[in-house]
Amino acid sequence: MSTIKKFFYVNRKAPYGTVYALESLEVVLIGAAFEQDVTLAFIDDGVYQLMKNQSTAGIGMKNFSPTYKALGDYDVTKLYVEKESLEARGLTIDDLMDLKWEDEDDDWAENDSIRVVTSAELADIMSEQDVVLSF
């Protein structure tokens, strides 16, 4: 496929309570096969999607958080987390999963996938996108 567009997935909801987070992840994984330029953003309660040590034993739902760790293998390597959303919830990057991707052009060096950015920085990133999908 010749056309490469910038796809931007905005994740706004907590991982459980509604199905948006899970079904957003399904779009990202399928979309990865199309070799587009993919960026994910996590804002509002969406930051909870990346929390480490999630357990769903008490709610009878499948814990799909390990899937985020596979994103690097799908060349989904840009996950932006909004600083203000983290702070409003008393969270820091240390509360989030340690997601990595390996750079095949740099002897498979491990890089962090998650970057914390301000709302203003995220707005700049969003303004450069071609396709914005909001979940």
Partner: peptide, 10 residues
């Protein structure tokens, strides 16, 4: 499938 959505985006 979901590929139809991605294709629409493209």
């Amino acid at each position: 499938g979901l590929g139809q959505l991605i294709e629409a985006g493209i």
